[in-house]
Every structure is written in C-alpha cells, then in structure tokens.
C-alpha cells in the first residue's frame, strides 16, 4: 500500500513538473511600433522593451501584456503626443493580447527549427477589444523559444483619432512588430 501511494505521489509530482515545463515566458520582450505615413518626412516609431509574454506549448495559448507608457520615441514631443493625445496611457495604461497558435500541433517544441505559425486572439487597447489574426514565426533553439510576428492595427478600430493636421505624417494603421525570446517557466 505504501508503495502504491509513493508511486502515486511520484506520478502526481512528475505530472506537475511536466505542466510547469509546458510554459515559456519573458518579461523583456520587444514591440516596435511604426505609424509612419508613406508621405511623412520623419519616422513615427517607438519601441517597448518590457513586454510580458507567456506561451503554453501544450495548448498553444499565448498572452501578451504591454505598458503603453513604456514606449520610447526619439523625439520627446512625439512620445508625449503618443501618450497624451492618442493612446491616452494614463487612462488606459495596459494593452493586452490573449490568443492562441491555431496550428500549434505543427510546431515541434523539442526540435530546433523555425516554424511558421498563425496566431489568433483578442487585442485590448485604448479600452477597445478587437479580434486580430496574424502570421508569425516560432524558432526553437537549444530549449529556448523565439517568437516573432508582424501585423498592423487600424487606429479607428480602437477609437484612436488622428487629427487631419498630422494625417500626412501619421498613417491610419500602425505596424506592430513583436520579438520575444522566451525561457521555460520553472
């Protein structure tokens, strides 16, 4: 009887270990934001280096969280306009994405390689939630995951209005580039 319970406990423990192994995360992911209009003489771009991301490799579920005030722009004025006039980061400090890799089964997380993925989910920004879908890449190298994706978001979808005065500089859509190096969650 004692033996059985030991085996049972071991089984439970190993199961838990496997479960914890199934998740990868980072708190230093990067997101590049580019809203430069084609005719604009200057670049409208910012970068955030403190993106949180978790991927559950079993289910393919993934989550991102970004603090809007963490975007850095080359010009101070641009950063202030971004925060105060457009994304209103004091009112809506966080942007979140909750979704999943639709073709998770095709990714072999135990084998080094580059796997094209499709990601689908809900993006909440500026108090609005919208469905987004994008192509991305998952690269596996030495037990670590690198996840990249590039997609665009239309400001109008998130009730962000760009004044006509600057519409020749700021595009109607922002191109978002995500780059996260994930480590196993222990």
């Amino acid at each position: 009887m004692k033996k059985i319970s030991t085996v049972f406990i071991l089984f439970i423990l190993s199961f838990q270990a496997i479960q914890a192994q199934g998740k990868f995360f980072t708190k230093t992911g990067k997101i590049n934001f580019n809203a430069t209009a084609p005719s604009s003489p200057e670049k409208i771009e910012g970068v955030n280096k403190a993106v949180t991301c978790v991927i559950d490799i079993k289910t393919g579920n993934m989550q991102f969280a970004v603090l809007m005030k963490g975007f850095e722009f080359e010009r101070a004025l641009m950063e202030e306009h971004f925060n105060e006039n457009y994304v209103e980061s004091s009112k809506f400090p966080k942007t979140e994405f909750k979704g999943s890799v639709s073709n998770n089964a095709t990714v072999n997380y135990t084998k080094d390689g580059v796997y094209p993925v499709k990601v689908k989910g809900k993006l909440t920004m500026h108090g609005e939630t919208k469905e987004v879908e994008t192509d991305g890449k998952i690269s596996i190298k030495g037990g670590k995951i690198n996840a990249t994706a590039s997609f665009s978001v239309a400001f109008a979808d998130y009730k962000i209005t760009i004044p006509t005065l600057v519409s020749d500089k700021i595009a109607k859509k922002a191109n978002i580039e995500v780059d996260c190096s994930l480590e196993p969650l222990k």
């Binding site: 998740k23 708190k27 978790v54 603090l67 005030k69 963490g70 400090p93 966080k94």
Partner: peptide
C-alpha cells in the same frame, strides 16, 4: 515609472 503589470503566474511587477 511606466506602470504595474499584475500577473498571478509570473508575479506582479
């Protein structure tokens, strides 16, 4: 300070 990121699993920072 750019804010607070609350997460039950990863810790709140």
């Amino acid at each position: 300070c750019t804010g607070f990121n609350a997460d039950e699993m990863l810790g709140s920072d």
